[in-house]
Nucleic acid binder design. Structure first.
Lengths: 98, 98
DNA sequence: TGGTTGCTCAACCAGATGGTTGAACACATG
DNA sequence: CATGTGTTCAACCATCTGGTTGAGCAACCA
């Protein structure tokens, strides 16, 4: 995949599992195990997904004993929004991109 | 890649070349050759990129003699915007997603 | 100390992606 | 009809992706 920030964010959200995780994290921080629970994949696979989100700057990790809670960092979404606003058909307000 | 519409749109825009093409098409329709001109790849490669954009519903093709002009269909971007708005840190207005 | 829990790293695999070249199709024009 | 232009299709290739299993590390607990 291309290495630029915008590409990483779009790429990260191109996977429904990852979008789902973002939705889950919007409710509150969660551990890898908690995030893996709804899905029919191994914890390792979920850990990989998180790595993608982390490299896109969308989540951060802390340490809490042996747990590594995941925290949503939604600021990067604004990067995408700024790009998209330029090409939307239905401008949310006049005057170009916010 | 996952087959759902939202994933296809995110995926399509995860490539800087394709984003660039969208930017070019926002100015006006263009043929495959015109679109390929700025890039250091074959016309076939550009044709493949267009196929991705088309399958994401972001462009349509007509026929004009032997040319097949490409037209931007920006409506699908709203799909993405709706998703994103839910998780942005800086809500453009109160009251949840538009 | 030794075991258990939470997580990551490494190696591997099947399938997708983005590029190539070469051939073919569609249409206009000599 | 033959040739040139614009585009796509097919086959191939290297690399990436999303999954697996197995091993290992870090921190708590008995």
């Amino acid at each position: 995949m291309a290495a630029d920030a915008l590409s990483r964010v779009f790429e990260a959200l191109a996977d429904p599992t990852r979008r789902d995780m973002v939705a889950r994290l919007a409710v509150g921080d969660a551990t890898v195990n908690e995030l893996a629970q709804p899905y029919d994949v191994t914890v390792q696979a979920v850990s990989k997904h998180l790595k993608v989100l982390q490299e896109a700057g969308m989540v951060s990790r802390t340490r809490q004993a042996q747990r590594r809670p995941v925290h949503l960092e939604a600021e990067v979404l604004d990067l995408m929004t700024k790009w998209i606003e330029r090409y939307r058909t239905a401008p949310p307000e006049q005057g170009g991109p916010r």
